[in-house]
Structures are given as C-alpha cells and as structure tokens.
C-alpha cells in the first residue's frame, strides 16, 4: 500500500511567441491556455500505476493560483483520487520556497496519520526550469531523491527506478519514503475515460494556504531573445527543388561534390 503524492505546476501553454507582462516579470498568459509539463504528465501516470499496483493512493498537488484546480482535475481524471491546492502567487516563490511548502503539506499529512511514501515530481518545470524542487524537497524532508527517472515501480518497501545515464540505462533501488523526479519518455500517459472525468468532478480537493514566508527566486526581469536575423531563402516548390537542395548540401559541405 504505497501512498503517492504527485506534484504538478500550472504553466502557460505557449507554442508560438512568448509575450511578457508590462513589467517584464512574468509571461503574459492572457491569450493562451494552460497546461503542465510532459514530464509531470508522466509522473502522474507513474503515480497512478504505483497506487494501482500496491493498492495505495495517488494524491495530486499543485502550488499556485486557484485556477490550478483545472490541472488538478486533469490528473484526477486519469487516476489520482484526491487533490491538494496550495494557493499562492508562484511569482513570489522560488524553488526552495515551493519545496518548503510541499514539505509542510507532507508533514501535516503524516502528522494526521496519512503516510506519504513516495513523492513524484517532474524533473524540471516547463516555465522556470529550475531543476531543484525535487532535490530541495528531499532535503527538507530528509529523504533520498532520484532525478532523471523514466520509470519506477514499488517492491515492498523499496522503489526501483530506471533512467538514462551516460553509459546506458541506470537502475536504482531506494528505500521508501523517497522522492523521485521523472522525465518524459518511459511511460505513456493515459487518456481520461468518461468515468474518469465523472470521478474527477466529484473528487475532493483540499485547499490550503502556505505558511512559509517566501525568499523568492532572485528574478530581476524576463526578456525575449531577439529573433534570428536574416530572412529565409526559399529554394523552390515541391520535387523540383531537389537539385537546388543537393547543391546547398554540397555548398555547406555535408555532401561531397
């Protein structure tokens, strides 16, 4: 019976140009939707798999604005059974602050008799990409942590995890309770079923206010890098362009004349 807590972050779903707010301190998300990182979608899938395999539970947590309920419901629709919303202004929270707030939630649950055996997170958040919350959370809780993990399973009181290392697939075996940061690629997130969506609507969401006083991230400002200068040279249309393409390949030296 492994109780898993999986942490996700609501981020702007930009695919084209990034727009900034007037003060340059955040991404202007007025004209885009919201999503979570693909790494976190895989963490949610693994949380569901571990909960199912061990007869335990999967709880999904986000720290952010109240609209984060949207992302919690998406995770609840694919197998998590309850949600936690830690309502806070993410722009004021650096990775150490987020980790401290999540650690508080874990400690409070454990104090109330609900063990949190495994915390799963994404390896890096899609917007700030700090690569730190999982490790800092592990230190705050004094638990072992693995990062860059593609898949994991629980065997009794241990988590067995795999990830790609410089010399091949690395295998780890770590005693629970533990913290694991997940990368996209090892599992395929499932699509929500109709019953999943129905359940998600009714699933309980515990709304909390963090008690940590944030130190902040050190952000001075955001900027958008200048676009590549120069215009595109169109070599032609359709199959007729093939000779011009091969001429170019020769010119830049990837094909010998």
């Amino acid at each position: 019976m492994t109780n898993v807590l999986v942490c996700i972050k609501r981020v702007p779903d930009v695919s084209g140009e990034v727009l900034l707010t007037e003060d340059g301190m955040s991404v202007d998300a007025r004209h885009v939707g919201f999503t979570v990182s693909p790494h976190e979608e895989c963490a949610v899938e693994l949380a569901t798999q571990v909960a199912d395999a061990t007869g335990g539970s999967a709880t999904v947590l986000t720290l952010g604005p109240s609209d984060g309920v949207e992302q919690l419901r998406s995770a609840l629709a694919v197998g998590c059974s309850s949600g936690v919303l830690v309502e806070a202004d993410t722009d004021r929270f650096g990775p150490a602050d987020v980790a401290a707030a999540i650690a508080d939630v874990v400690r409070a649950r454990e104090a109330a008799g609900d063990s949190v055996d495994l915390v799963l997170l994404g390896n890096d958040a899609a917007d700030t990409g700090d690569f730190q919350v999982p490790v800092r959370l592990a230190y705050a809780l004094d638990r072992p942590v693995l990062t860059n993990i593609s898949s994991c399973e629980v065997d009794a009181d241990r988590v067995i995890a795999r990830g790609d290392g410089p010399d091949g697939t690395e295998i780890f075996e770590v005693p629970l309770p533990a913290v694991v940061a997940v990368l996209e690629g090892g599992v395929t997130p499932r699509y929500p079923s109709i019953t999943g969506r129905m359940k998600a609507k009714k699933a309980p969401i515990d709304i909390q206010t963090p008690t940590v006083e944030p130190r902040g991230s050190g952000r001075v400002r955001l900027r958008v890098p200048p676009p590549r200068s120069g215009t595109v040279e169109v070599l032609g249309q359709g199959a007729d362009a093939a000779p011009a393409v091969v001429d170019l390949l020769v010119k830049i030296g990837v094909v010998s004349a």
Binding site: E17, R223, P225
Partner: peptide, 8 residues
Amino acid sequence: VGGAALED
C-alpha cells in the same frame, strides 16, 4: 520556457 525566454 525551454529557451523561448531569458531570465536575469
């Protein structure tokens, strides 16, 4: 944001 923006 994956390199689409820079942060000082």
